[in-house]
Design a protein around this nucleic acid. Structure first.
Lengths: 288, 288
DNA sequence: CGTGCCAGGTGCCTT
DNA sequence: AAGGCACTTGGCACG
């Protein structure tokens, strides 16, 4: 692990450090006064201001202001960074193809440049995703319906993969769509497409079927939307389609474990300080 | 504009600088070896490694590795940052409510800490959005259909706002849904919901209508999906519903202006260097 | 504040 | 490479 940091470098110096950092495959941050231009899927211009530019060895580029989680401009991984001094000013350009996109950062002044060699794990262990919800449903199928038996997951249909496919106690096919959070009308539409696809498939989709067979199949494919909750419109749509809602979310409510982290509270000797942003400005403290 | 930067500070020093930076409302970067825990809408654990932590005065917190455009962990704006030294180690916690979420970064070592006061424009001028596409449609309504006349934009319906609503040369209502890029089946579903809502509205939705009136209204509400292109499934669905597709994207193909940025090529005297990431590793250069 | 919807969405996986 | 979809999606505008 190494960190190189230069304070208020000349543009030439900055270029030199950038070159070296590129070669080393470092993670780079450049803080300075700059303008940003982007052209590709869309196009944008950003006037002069202080920004933090992050250049990653995988080709990602991020331009951050002092606000927001989302970078004001960026380039995805796989792009190619290129630095140059032009008219005495540092310029960083990041390009990619497919789609063709270019990000250009023109520095008026470089306040600081750092380059860091990064090591260590990148793999995040995440809980509470839709996959966890699926596991929960498969472990306790009765949550879907009294006699529900899962047959397959990610079952392919003409409309796309069905999250969980199975049969109910009457032997009728059941299409289950899982959502880890409260859903809107779009999720009902998604479920409807799957149900229609399975129905068409089971009725032979164009092949000849006796009327009563088709009618039976038509009604017999059930649709179940599993989600913690629904918006009103979604509920209406769901009712219109004759589908069911099962109120269920990812297991082991993450909300509880929040406390474990939040209750990092005081049983200790050391220093601390807080910065309250959301509330009353940046007045410090509120905690012990 | 000021930059404060400390190299390999002690945990106490780091805390001190963090406190000061919080008070000043600075943009902060902390590079160090750490583990990260998150609990809230989901929950996650990230093992030890070198990461770049960014703390913004608006409450946003980002944890970046050397890969990816998306932070490996984060907290949205509006959160409250809190720093402390615990068991001799720097800890940064970022909390928010609604939903309750906590991000905890435990530093094993702090390689570098910087605090920067940020000034300057944050407003991005973006071209090529859906709004630009709408403008284009309103300026040249004939692109939708020979005699199309727009009546309103963002017209409210029971299913949500219709992008552009108007009448065709036969006086029949037309529902237009705009998409700035190639679309899938979901967009067709969206259009279908709007068309159904308008149809219900015009047929009186439950009120009595003579059969022929209802039938007329039924067929007469047209649906038009405006997008550069469709996937096959979307096209099929669109045909099933009897809707139309108009192949149109945001104006002034951004693709061309890419060249303006890309053709930053050489008519100059100065230094430059490039870092090819996507291709052949990090061998430098390829340009003049 | 919730609902709905766009986004230069990004990222992941399958065909 | 394109399609389909989840995401701690984020962000905005509106009721």
């Amino acid at each position: 692990m190494t960190v190189i940091s230069v304070h208020a470098p000349s543009h030439r110096e900055a270029l030199w450090e950038l070159e070296s950092a590129f070669e080393r495959g470092d993670l780079i941050t450049v803080f300075g006064r700059c303008t940003v231009s982007y052209a590709g899927r869309a196009a944008s211009e950003l006037g002069v201001g202080d920004r933090l530019l992050i250049l990653k060895p995988d080709g990602a580029a991020l331009v951050h202001t002092d606000e927001g989680r989302t970078p004001v401009n960026w380039q995805p991984p796989g792009s190619t960074h290129h630095a140059a001094v032009r008219e005495g000013r540092l310029r960083v350009r990041s390009k990619r193809t497919n789609p063709a996109e270019t990000l250009l950062v023109r520095f008026e002044r470089v306040h600081q440049l750092s380059a860091m060699s990064v090591t260590g794990g990148r793999d995040l262990e995440l809980h509470g995703s839709e996959e966890d919800l699926r596991t929960r449903v498969l472990e306790r199928p009765e949550l879907i319906a009294p006699g529900f038996e899962p047959v397959s997951t990610e079952r392919e249909t003409a409309a796309g993969p069905v999250d969980v496919f199975g049969v109910d106690d009457a032997g009728d096919p059941v299409v289950v769509e899982l959502k880890r959070r409260r859903v809107g009308p779009d999720a009902v539409g998604q479920l409807a497409r799957y149900v229609a696809a399975v129905r068409d498939e089971l009725t032979g989709d164009g092949e000849f079927l006796a009327d009563h067979e088709a009618a039976t199949a038509d009604d017999s494919v059930r649709g179940v939307l599993v989600a913690p909750s629904l918006t009103d419109r979604a509920a209406d749509l769901l009712a219109d389609r004759g589908f069911d809602h099962v109120a269920l979310g990812p297991p082991a409510d993450a909300g509880e474990s929040v406390d474990a982290l939040a209750d990092d509270s005081d049983d200790s000797d050391d220093l601390d300080d807080s910065n309250t942003t959301a509330g009353s400005g940046s007045r410090p403290d509120e905690s012990a």
